[in-house]
């Protein structure tokens, strides 16, 4: 297969676009569902975004697009593992839309689509993010709907 790898995942969440945007951009919030990772930025296009985990910067990236509460895109370049650092940055995009089938009488439902692309054909990062995003996005949905993130047990 010589097509470039691309990860696409959609989930429907009982929340508003504004609350979902806050969950994606507030470090106090991301730490709860992203394995303790704080995402820090001023969230404007061209700005720096860092992922901070246990006090250390594990990603140092750039905001590509920021249109709250609908569209967010940034480069994605893990720094914390030697064999990943040499791989060029990929790109992740979050699209938030109101779900068409929703019943407004019963409360809002939004559709979040995460697209992660621009990987080299032999990417080592791609298989890792393909496992990682369903964990993170499952926990994000649980947090927004129940008030508590999924508690994944420690270990491998």
């Amino acid at each position: 297969m010589n097509t470039k790898p691309k990860f696409v995942y959609s989930t429907l969440i009982a929340t508003t676009p504004e609350k979902l945007w806050a969950a994606l951009t507030d470090p106090e919030f991301t730490a709860q569902y992203w394995g303790g990772t704080r995402l820090e930025s001023d969230w404007t296009a061209g700005s720096r975004i860092v992922f901070r985990w246990q006090g250390k910067i594990v990603h140092d990236d750039t905001i590509l697009k920021s249109e709250p509460p609908r569209l967010l895109s940034y480069t994605f370049h893990p720094l914390h593992m030697e064999e990943l650092r040499s791989e060029p940055p990929s790109r992740v995009t979050f699209e938030i839309e109101e779900f068409k089938g929703q019943s407004t009488r019963q409360g809002p439902v939004v559709k979040l689509t995460v697209t992660h692309e621009d990987f080299p054909a032999d990417s080592k990062i791609f298989p890792m993010i393909s496992n990682g995003w369903p964990d993170i996005l499952s926990s994000l949905k649980t947090l927004l709907e129940t008030g508590r993130a999924i508690e994944f047990a420690k270990g491998t």
Binding site: Q106, S138, K141
Partner: peptide, 13 residues
């Protein structure tokens, strides 16, 4: 997932 975690499904038709 919503139904199992909250007791009610997502509110859409």
């Amino acid at each position: 997932k919503t139904l199992l975690e909250t007791g009610a499904p997502l509110p859409f038709n």
